[in-house]
Amino acid sequence: MSDQVLVGVDGSEASLAAVDVAVREARLRRTRLRIVHAFIWPLMRVPLGPAQDGPPEGGLRHQAEGILADARARAEALDPQLEIETELVTGEPLTVLSRWSREAGLVVVGSRGLGRFGALLIGSVAVHLAAHADCPVLIVRGRPDPAGPVLAAVDGSGVGAEALGFAFAEAAARRAPLTALHIAHPSTSWPDQEERVLSEALAGWREKYPDVELRSEVVEAHTRPALIEASREAQLLVVGARGRGGFAGLLVGSTSQAMIQHAHCPVVVVRHPSERTAEA
């Protein structure tokens, strides 16, 4: 795995918005940007060139090349100094982005794609990537507050620790405050115990990132609605793929799925290294 930023594009406005975010993330990481378009039509055995009586610039391959060219031009306009690579890859988006995530430090995807069922499709794309990508996945959605904090969901699990580490690093790179939020179920929580979970989760990170302005809080509430509400004032929400109390067979938990679909700001889903190793 490298630290390059990978973004998938399909020509939609949402994927171009993802390019904007990916450019910023690559700049923050001082790394290169790789823009990928999954070209599924060769698998369908359909003609890829222009129609016999059509314009020479027509055809599916030319259209795909145009999608990449537009995305590259947008990225170059935002940061002319950024190192950018474009790739036209035969395959369907889920498989292509999962495979190429092995060479990335972050994958960025838009909140909806082309087509009538775009909003539904992004749920499947984002959940699939969150469950199988070899690096964190950033889903560009909502209307982030650019002055808001990076919001991290803390649950005391191993994957929660990975997500918290990512959140601290992101807050430091953005020079943004960090809100570490531990949500305890009202009917099963013990205040002293929940405060200890939060304190232990933060141990070490404060020292590693002393310049990050940190606010930590324990809230008694139901996890999903509380995180969705808190995301209104955030510029980014970071969650673990599957936290404490999740079913072992689920690579993406119900909380992260809910955030992918309903958060008011972009969402990063982080997996634990042991989950990635188990799939290798």
Rank of each mutant, 00 (worst) to 15 (best):
S187Y: 09
S187G: 06
T188Q: 12
T188A: 13
T188E: 12
T188M: 02
T188N: 08
T188H: 06
T188G: 05
T188F: 07
S189W: 03
S189F: 02
S189K: 04
S189L: 01
W190I: 14
P191D: 07
P191M: 07
P191E: 12
D192M: 12
D192L: 14
D192S: 15
Q193D: 15
Q193W: 13
E194I: 08
E194W: 03
E195S: 08
V197R: 00
V197G: 04
V197H: 01
V197S: 03
L198H: 06
L198D: 06
L198I: 08
S199R: 14
S199M: 04
S199E: 13
S199F: 03
E200F: 09
E200L: 13
E200Q: 14
A201L: 10
A201G: 08
A201V: 03
A201C: 05
L202V: 11
L202M: 11
L202C: 11
A203D: 13
A203H: 13
A203N: 10
A203L: 12
G204K: 06
G204W: 02
W205L: 08
R206A: 11
R206W: 02
R206K: 12
E207I: 03
E207Q: 15
E207D: 15
E207T: 13
E207R: 11
K208L: 08
K208D: 04
Y209I: 05
P210Q: 05
P210H: 04
P210G: 04
D211A: 15
D211R: 09
V212H: 00
V212N: 00
V212C: 01
V212R: 00
V212P: 00
E213Y: 00
E213D: 11
L214T: 02
L214P: 04
L214F: 00
L214D: 03
L214E: 00
R215I: 10
R215M: 05
R215K: 12
R215V: 08
S216P: 01
S216C: 03
S216V: 01
E217D: 10
E217F: 09
E217S: 11
E217Y: 05
E217M: 11
V218I: 07
V218C: 02
V218G: 01
V218W: 00
V219E: 10
V219L: 15
V219A: 09
V219N: 01
V219Y: 04
V219D: 01
E220Q: 10
E220K: 13
A221T: 04
A221M: 05
A221R: 03
A221K: 06
H222I: 08
H222E: 14
T223Q: 05
T223R: 07
T223W: 01
T223I: 12
R224K: 10
R224Y: 04
R224W: 01
R224Q: 14
A226K: 09
A226E: 11
A226V: 04
A226S: 08
L227A: 09
L227S: 05
I228S: 10
I228E: 12
I228L: 14
I228K: 13
E229P: 02
E229W: 04
A230E: 09
A230Q: 05
A230W: 01
S231A: 12
S231W: 09
S231Y: 06
S231R: 09
R232K: 15
R232I: 07
R232G: 11
R232P: 03
R232T: 14
R232V: 11
E233Q: 14
E233N: 13
E233M: 09
E233S: 15
E233D: 15
E233R: 14
A234L: 06
A234T: 07
A234G: 07
Q235G: 10
